[in-house]
Simulated scan of single mutants.
Amino acid sequence: MKLTAGLRVEALGPHHDRGAFTSGVEQLDRYFRTQAGQDARKNMAATFVLILDDGSIGGYYTLSSTAIVLSELPAQTVSRLARYPLVPATLLGRLAVDRHQQGRGFGRFLLADALMRVVRSEIASFAVIVDAKNDAARSFYAREGFLPFPDRPLKLFRPIADIRKVLD
């Protein structure tokens, strides 16, 4: 993955031009253009954007708080947790790379940035959760160490303890 030093990830702001961004997934593009700013202002989701050398947006992701029903997790995971009905987690709700930038490693770069933000947070979170949009997205997250929920192959999680081991 060759990334240039001029790349940066920052919180979405009103100065960012979202109009030219196209990932090829209409649902993700529409959200980014019309809803991401509102969700950020209402504290529903924090959106972070990858700024390229030329100032354009190369991709984005969103983070928000969520909870996992304990019984949804695999039995071997549940056996190591306290018996609370809900387990705190962080939702990586959306992750998209502009179609002109795909294949350059920016998806992995954005995922790594998101995971680092979650690990550095002072808010308790057992895992990062993703709802993959399709099998290709599911495969991407699986390659990055995410595990499927039983009976829900497009919903995956990765424990924070596992992420910390990789980042340390």
Rank of each mutant, 00 (worst) to 15 (best):
V69R: 13
V69E: 12
V69H: 12
L70Y: 11
S71Q: 15
E72P: 12
A75M: 08
A75G: 12
Q76N: 15
Q76G: 13
V78G: 15
V78E: 15
V78F: 14
S79E: 13
R80H: 13
R80M: 12
R80G: 15
R80T: 15
R80S: 14
L81E: 07
R83M: 07
R83H: 13
Y84D: 10
L86T: 15
L86M: 13
L86H: 14
V87G: 07
P88F: 00
A89L: 01
T90L: 01
T90V: 03
T90D: 01
L91Q: 06
L91K: 10
L92P: 09
G93D: 05
L95K: 00
V97A: 02
V97I: 08
R99T: 02
R99K: 05
H100C: 01
Q101D: 07
Q101E: 14
Q102I: 03
G103I: 00
G103S: 00
R104G: 09
G105T: 04
G105H: 04
G105K: 02
G107M: 00
G107W: 00
R108K: 11
F109S: 08
F109Y: 14
F109D: 04
L110K: 08
A112D: 12
A112K: 08
A112Q: 10
A112C: 03
A114S: 11
L115S: 02
L115C: 09
L115V: 07
R117V: 11
R117L: 12
V118W: 06
V118Y: 05
V119L: 08
V119A: 11
R120A: 11
R120E: 05
S121Y: 04
E122T: 12
I123R: 04
A124M: 08
A124E: 15
F126D: 12
A127V: 05
A127Y: 01
A127G: 03
A127S: 08
A127C: 10
V128K: 10
V128A: 10
V128R: 09
V128I: 11
I129T: 03
I129H: 05
I129Q: 06
D131L: 13
D131K: 15
D131F: 09
A132Q: 10
D135A: 15
A137W: 01
A137F: 04
R138I: 00
F140D: 06
Y141I: 01
Y141F: 03
A142S: 12
A142R: 14
A142E: 11
